[in-house]
């Protein structure tokens, strides 16, 4: 027994998943770190004792006060609605286009370089164009948030659809399966794990795009609320809003991660099914 243990170098870690203690350590570590950072923030705020550096309690309290104002609530619900619309469009349109493109090797080879070129442009600077053509309102913001998320969705789905494994395809050919059956039974299940990953990644990008244009065009929304407080130097309000933004981002993404884990376990190569 002892000889077997000395062979394994300590650098190669084999996390023991069955051990309950290590599971608890894995789960608690990020919580400890987060609490530590919040504690550090609190301590710094106490030491500085400055109005431009409030402690966490003040920030949360300011957020709760703001949430009682009708105007602020309108801004928050406005952002949520715009995010929901643009993200749904990203998922439906992006996945459909990407999947269709991935089915044709030739056209995905021809179009992908263009998409990658557009993708590498910092998209924010194109926002004035959206404002020029769609006006200073919800339409241009939704359109831009959609534009921020749709390209990665298309690119990831193109790759996912093109990555159908060769062996099942050959089997399908010898069984003379129709094209529709091949897509339903082989290509789609194979692309599902990548699709769930894309769902999670594009959510972040869509939210980011929306928040940036709300900061820029400044009519309403959370981004506008954030920027509005700069000249007033109301740090408690700003930090409270940032906390709200973090919560708004983390709740759906945590759910999407759980979904991603389930789908990956079920459909990835070597999975149960």
């Amino acid at each position: 027994m002892t000889t077997a243990e000395t062979v394994v170098p300590p650098v190669v870690r084999q996390p023991d998943r069955t051990s309950r203690q290590s599971r608890i350590a894995t789960a608690s570590a990020p919580v400890v770190l987060t609490l530590g950072l919040v504690g550090l923030w609190w301590a710094t705020a106490l030491v500085l004792d400055s109005s431009v550096f409030p402690d966490p309690a003040t920030a949360v309290q300011r957020l709760l006060v703001n949430l009682e104002s009708a105007r602020f609530l309108r801004s928050v619900t406005g952002t949520i609605v715009r995010l929901a619309i643009s993200y749904s469009l990203v998922v439906i349109v992006g996945a459909a286009i990407g999947f269709a493109l991935g089915l044709s090797r030739f056209w995905s080879d021809a179009v992908s370089p263009l998409l990658y070129a557009i993708y590498s442009i910092p998209k924010v600077v194109l926002f004035p164009l959206f404002l020029l053509f769609l006006g200073l309102g919800a339409t241009s913001q939704i359109a831009f948030a959609f534009f921020s998320g749709v390209l990665p969705m298309i690119l990831m789905m193109t790759n996912a659809a093109a990555a159908a494994p060769r062996l099942p395809l050959k089997l399908a050919a010898s069984l003379r399966m129709s094209r529709a059956a091949v897509i339903c039974k082989i290509v789609v299940p194979n692309a599902l794990p990548a699709f769930t990953s894309a769902l999670r990644l594009t959510f972040g990008l869509t939210f980011l795009g929306l928040l940036i244009v709300e900061m820029f065009s400044g009519v309403s929304g959370l981004g506008y609320e954030l920027l509005r407080n700069i000249p007033l130097a109301r740090m408690g309000d700003i930090i409270g809003e940032v906390i709200l933004v973090v919560v708004m981002a983390l709740v759906p993404v945590t759910a999407l991660r759980a979904l991603e884990g389930r789908i990956h376990r079920r459909y990835s190569a070597g999975g149960a099914k």
């Binding site: 999670r200 990644l201 959510f203 972040g204 990008l205 939210f207 980011l208 928040l211 940036i212 900061m215 981004g223 954030l226 809003e241 940032v242 933004v245 973090v246 981002a249 983390l250 993404v253 945590t254 991660r257």
Partner: peptide
Amino acid sequence: VYYAVPVFA
């Protein structure tokens, strides 16, 4: 989950 949070906030 870092990139889910809009850092620019």
